Simulated assay, not measured.
Amino acid sequence: MMASREELEHAYSPSRWSHRMGSDDVINAHIKTLTEGSNLARECVDCEVGFSFGLSEKEKFDVFGAKTLPGDAPIFVYIHGGYWSALGREMSSFMAPVLCKAGAVVVSVGYDLAPQANMDEIVSQVKKAVSFVLTMATRRGSSGVYLCGHSAGAHLAALMLSQNWLEETMVSPGMIKGAVLVCGVYDLRPLVNTYVNDPLKMTVEDAVRNSPVTHLDKIAGFSEKRRFIVAYGDHDPPEFQRQSTEFNIALSSRGIQSTLMVIPDTDHFNVIENLQLEDYSLSQEIVKLMNLNIGPILDQMQSTNIS
């Protein structure tokens, strides 16, 4: 039996499932937390903001730690969520103090939001941004690029794993060493008949074309040596939990090194907000993924301007 629109909208409304506060409050708190954390990052980490990679005002990314860290430092690329219609790069660098101290350059990516852009255009813009970062990584001699996205951003990051970057940028797809996909939607079809799609106006065909689940073989073909983390909070909506679990199984069944993380006592929002914390389990796993060690590096860098 097919779910009604009302049932689907409830299932795909993360704010209705928080265990910490009401729907409006958790969204307002999320925006406040991301904004304050990102403002702090711009104050305490060397940064270059507003690199343009396209013609629109939102097609920009910010770079943290590039001046201080060595050229071979890994690059952590963060793609924000907001159901493709909210948030932005200005509030997407909240994890930079922790990850830059651990030894990674952090890049926060912006893109046009619906309804100004449709899904195809958003995917194309993120693709351009990642192309620029891969070129930057090659020029720096970086040890690798690691993609991370939250919610809608996890969907976009997952799609980037299916690209043949050698054709796009003359950079080997092997430059992307891994990905951290947090609370993502990997099959867009359930969203077509919900409020989420009102600004996007996706057809079923659009949803299929832009769903990572329809590109699994391509992802596997480029990801033989990549390592993935697929994560969600234990108070995420059941549909987000299901999509994450099934996507991780699909990756693993194709020989990809993918680990599922269910993070206790977190909902759809603080599961990503907590990347501001050095001792947070997902922060620690990301540092390990990038072959860094948060403790000693932190100690060594206390006297630098990243402290």
Rank of each mutant, 00 (worst) to 15 (best):
D198G: 03
M136F: 09
R140I: 08
N118D: 15
E121W: 01
A152E: 10
S162Q: 11
S124T: 12
T135C: 11
Q163Y: 02
F132N: 15
L200D: 02
G141M: 14
G174T: 15
K201C: 11
D187T: 14
E168G: 01
H150S: 13
V185C: 12
L200A: 05
D198S: 12
A96F: 03
P173V: 09
Y83I: 07
V107T: 04
P173M: 12
L147N: 07
V126K: 06
V106Q: 01
V106M: 02
M170N: 11
T194Q: 05
S162F: 06
K201D: 07
L166Y: 15
V109A: 04
S151G: 15
R189F: 00
M119I: 15
K127N: 13
T135G: 06
A152D: 11
P115G: 06
A102T: 08
A157K: 07
H150W: 06
F132E: 15
S93N: 05
W165D: 00
A152T: 15
Y146I: 11
A207T: 14
L159P: 03
R209Y: 00
S93C: 09
V208S: 08
D206T: 13
Q125M: 09
C183H: 03
I79A: 00
E90Q: 12
G144W: 06
P199K: 07
L161S: 06
Y83A: 14
G144L: 13
L134T: 10
S151Y: 01
V192A: 05
A102K: 03
D198C: 07
N197M: 11
G184C: 09
L156C: 03
S151R: 10
L181C: 07
P212L: 14
G110R: 01
S162G: 11
A129L: 13
S143A: 11
L159K: 05
A137Y: 14
A102S: 11
V192D: 05
M202S: 07
T203F: 00
Y83S: 14
V182N: 05
K177Q: 12
C183V: 10
L156Y: 07
K177P: 04
P97H: 04
S93I: 12
V208C: 08
W84D: 05
R89Y: 02
Y78L: 04
L156H: 01
M136Q: 14
P199I: 09
M136W: 10
P212G: 08
Q125G: 02
A117S: 12
Q116R: 15
A73R: 07
D112I: 09
V204R: 11
L188Q: 08
F94G: 01
A179I: 03
V180W: 04
V109H: 06
R139P: 01
G81D: 03
L156I: 11
E205R: 12
A104K: 02
D120R: 11
L156S: 00
G184K: 09
N164D: 15
C100V: 15
H80R: 03
V180G: 04
G103H: 00
N210M: 04
I75L: 02
S211F: 02
T203A: 08
A207E: 12
M136P: 00
S143L: 09
